[in-house]
Design a protein around this nucleic acid. Structure first.
Lengths: 327, 327
DNA sequence: TTTCGTCTTTACATCGTTGGAACAACGATG
DNA sequence: CATCGTTGTTCCAACGATGTAAAGACGAAA
């Protein structure tokens, strides 16, 4: 590995002059600049980022704290965050919490200026007093807990309302919701959107049609759907708080020979790639993940220069597919 | 941020003594050790990893070079690699190539001792002469190209054979294969397993039943399946070289009202979580991803201490689901 | 010619950590 | 009591980079 010293010796100048060339400092004599550039080329010099960051007092990394990479939404988002972070010369350290309180607490505890310059958090279980952060941070998604931390995400209430309105427009009357959760902020907001859409259409809000889900995995969706199908009067539509729940729900429906969308219309949330190819394909609320990733990273970049509190609302759309075609 | 210096001042000892305590050096007087530990506790000292790695001449990171995080197989694997790397105090830097030659080349070029201590590679398009690696590396999966680099993966020929034998055991006679690829090593091996299983059953190997796929995404599987269904004499079973292809194939079959498994049995490869919940659920070859991740990371760890060339074969199994129940 | 100001380069210290050598303290040995 | 080996501690240099300050070069103005 060539260092600045090696390059300097070869070019016959001081280490600092090489450093100046590498960093694009203007006042270098054309002649020296040329010699240094040749030496850089000849040695194949690459800066040692550890050393550079040590000197500059930064780590060169940001943390991305999320439940689990095997959840498609987070996998897709992670890819986009990595791409966005690259623009600011940041590495992304991924920390999986598996959606547990202890996992999230220990992830947060391990953060800190010695490890990362900033952090993107997607917590599910944290309480208000857990947020004693030592680096600039952004929360993904809205949360019930009101903490003074920047946020990036869509308007969950509006998005849920759009989804449910769509079901109503199909003429469905008994619309269920899967994914209620006692402590999860986003769940509360989506539930609120669901409630308000029913209300504006003059449909009753029925407790029996709102099914909680402790996790948001396919298995939870299947279990919830089964309980709905066991009702004396089952729903004719269901709004699931994410696509995995919806996939699970459709699977459970298929097992009971309930036809989607004829007997049951289904809407999901997140627009996973998987949902385009399921049979039937799944109507879903599609947040613009690229915008989310870019907004989060850019916001962090700004915050590392000067502290600020910002909330960014990113766009979303409803993609209508087979699971909600008119009967 | 507390440094060793701060701790040393507080404890009334030299910096090196603190360092010795932190690093578990034995010969420290009990009394000093206690004072240092109290000071560590009081200051909340965390080592500056950048500085430590600089001094130790390592980077503290390994690279994981893969096509795309949004491919479930790689998302799941990445989570496991991160967990395994943590055991060796390694961060994982993820590099996406999108399966293109240029992407893989630039990823490889950007690697190097200044960035990472080692690398896990999952290349798809690289040629032999591209492998001029400057850090210890492991290839995931088997490859046709014969390069002196360690490998971790399952026996693809055997795995494919097991999958196709299973289809044969159902009494299927016209078994297609989706996923052939001119330059992809694993594709060649799976095709070989397919061929040999047909041969041992006395079934003919028919060119028209072997469909190439340039990418291994759901869309490619759907397109391939459509072409198979357009044949004068379509297949009664299909072996797909990964689950995404199989999901796409099943989707295409559904669009043509071809019933799976009654008219068409389908087997996939990778055992994505998604495949458990599709309708019908998908029979799939399940590599032990945990073993792969652990073996790869451990192997790299050994290689950073002393160079070595090892090939590790990890276990797999065939998980039979609805897409191949007997008719 | 001297002085001044602008460009250009260099020496040096520093970021936080650890390896190595030097040194100090100590009881044990002869 | 001198010597020795073991144990414990400190000092110094170094990892590779960059910020700072100071010095050097050079032409223009006085």
């Amino acid at each position: 590995m060539a260092t600045l010293k090696d390059v300097a010796r070869l070019a016959g100048v001081s280490v600092k002059t090489v450093s100046n060339v590498v960093n694009g400092y203007s006042f270098v004599k054309p002649d020296n600049r040329r010699r240094v550039e040749e030496a850089l080329e000849a040695t194949g010099y690459r800066p040692n980022l550890g050393a550079r960051n040590l000197r500059r007092g930064r780590t060169g990394s940001i943390a991305l704290v999320l439940p689990e990479l095997s959840i498609p939404y987070f996998a897709e988002l992670t890819g986009l965050v990595i791409a966005a972070a690259q623009e600011h010369e940041w590495n992304v350290l991924i920390e999986q919490t598996f959606g547990t309180l202890s996992g999230e607490r220990s992830a947060l505890a391990s953060l800190g200026p010695h490890l990362v310059d900033a952090a993107i958090l997607s917590p599910e279980a944290l309480h208000v007093d857990d947020f004693q952060l030592s680096v600039p941070s952004v929360l993904l998604g809205e949360h019930a807990v009101d903490v003074p931390i920047s946020r990036v995400g869509i308007d969950n209430v509006a998005a849920a309302r759009v989804a449910v309105r769509h079901l109503i427009s199909l003429g469905r009357k008994r619309i269920a919701a899967i994914g209620a959760h006692p402590h999860r902020g986003t769940a509360a907001l989506r539930l609120e959107g669901y409630r308000s859409a029913l209300e504006e259409a003059g449909l009753p809000f029925l407790d029996e049609l709102v099914v909680p889900a402790l996790n948001y995995h396919r298995a939870d969706g299947a279990a919830a759907m089964k309980s709905l199908l066991d009702l004396r009067n089952p729903p004719d539509a269901v709004f699931c708080f994410n696509d995995l729940l919806a996939i699970g729900a459709m699977r459970a429906a298929a097992e009971r020979f309930v036809r989607v969308p004829a007997d049951l219309a289904v809407v999901g949330f997140d627009n996973n790639e998987e949902s385009v190819y399921s049979s039937p394909s799944l109507t879903s609320v599609a947040p613009d993940k690229g915008s989310i990733a870019r907004a989060a990273v850019d916001l962090l970049h700004r915050q590392t220069e000067s502290p600020a509190l910002e909330h960014v609302e990113t766009p979303f759309s409803l993609l209508v597919r087979e699971s909600t075609v008119a009967r």
